[in-house]
Design a binder for these strands. Structure first.
Lengths: 220, 220
DNA sequence: GGCAACCAACCGATCGGTCGGTATGGATGA
DNA sequence: TCATCCATACCGACCGATCGGTTGGTTGCC
């Protein structure tokens, strides 16, 4: 189960979230992820929850306020999760591995919320919420770039452009939800670990110097 | 300009495509990419084209038949494009570079169609069209895996799992449309070239043997 | 005359959202 | 003890707006 309550921050404070509210979040989250925000009607959500549409509006003022906490929670929690597991005293290579693997761990736990948030990013009409979400996303991406820069400074990594390298890493991670099969033989963190190995050491077999020359000629 | 006519296969046959049809494709394509298929109404498209909604239905029988050729064309053409530029007699490393760079070249030319197709993949109600599109997508991904396998066989590449490595490469490419800025200093093929360098040689600075030992200890 | 291009007006369906009302169960006060 | 009260949880029926799509035309050019 997803433990969406944790992602939404509903379990920490004094409020006791109704089980119905959690159910609505879970149902809506999966439907948004699978068919998109516009592709899901309030009637759809109500039907799968086994309640009437009017009851849905007893718990939520409008459709946006179902998606918003999910999208915000996913974006904010992913940063808090990787930041909690980061340790700036470790070698940058290990920090990078943790960043990648912990992102996958998080994504596996909150797959639907992640997808729903990333596909419906553009539709929130409330500017403040949109801005806050972008800020958390920026923190997440900045942490990765900080790790890469630390690796350059320590001599562990050899990177021309930190921004480009960051895009490379983020692309591999962010594309995972599109094809990842939870029922497959490899769990997300294992795949992420292999990604990290490939990213660090490259696809190329260690070439003798003359092979490099030959390659350069062939490109021309 | 996009030259959507080429992507749609409208210029090769005897038919003379009306300029209006091209205009509708261009407008719809960009709107679908920016706001999603469900987020765009036929009224929106008609308004930006400067025609009435009824006239839209003079050229297209329904909404799906505007998106379908765009999505199909993007998926089919990307494969044909990279396959045309592939040369199985070249070293696998060069073939891989061409695959990545030519994908970026194509994506830069048909950015909106690419995005519209990849986001609206799931909504086509016509099973035959969906199946055909998946088939072209599979050919595209299989070509990449073939190149990787050729590199393993020739000793150029050192890859444990071709599927995983393929996902890695595809992720970096497919995520590009999400952040790529056409007005930025680097064009898509240049970025793709840098991606290829990083993918081939890795982020890690060539480590002395003892540094590798140290790293392994730190992971534990 | 015939046909491509175009449009205002309209259709049934569905959208997000509202309204008035009901069943229930626990606290309150005489 | 029992009537009252109130908040919570729920629902059927409805609203105006908008959706994809249709109809019955009117132009203007060959």
């Amino acid at each position: 189960m997803d433990d969406l309550a944790g992602l939404l921050g509903l379990d920490g404070n004094g409020e006791v979230p109704s089980g119905r509210i959690i159910q609505i979040y879970e149902v809506a989250c999966r439907q948004f992820a699978q068919r998109g925000f516009d592709g899901v009607s309030m009637r759809d959500i109500a039907a799968e929850c086994g309640i009437s549409k009017a009851t849905l509006y007893h718990y939520f003022p409008d459709k946006d306020s179902i998606l918003r906490p999910l999208a915000m929670g996913a974006t904010k929690s992913i940063y808090l999760h990787v930041a909690r597991h980061d340790d700036a005293t470790l070698p940058a290579v290990d920090r990078l591995r943790r960043f990648i693997v912990e992102t996958a761990t998080f994504f596996e736990a909150f797959r639907w919320a992640w997808i729903a948030g990333s596909t419906a990013f553009w539709s929130d009409p409330e500017a403040r919420a949109r801005k806050e979400r972008v800020a958390w996303r920026d923190r997440y991406e900045q942490l990765l770039r900080d790790i890469l820069q630390a690796g350059i400074d320590s001599g562990e990594l050899k990177i021309g452009d930190v921004k480009i390298a960051g895009r490379l890493v983020l692309g591999t991670i962010n594309w995972m939800p599109r094809w990842y099969n939870p029922a497959g033989p490899l769990k997300a963190p294992e795949i992420a670990g292999q990604f990290c190995n490939l990213l660090l050491d490259g696809l190329r077999a260690a070439p003798p110097a003359k092979a490099v020359r030959q390659r350069k000629k062939a490109v021309e």
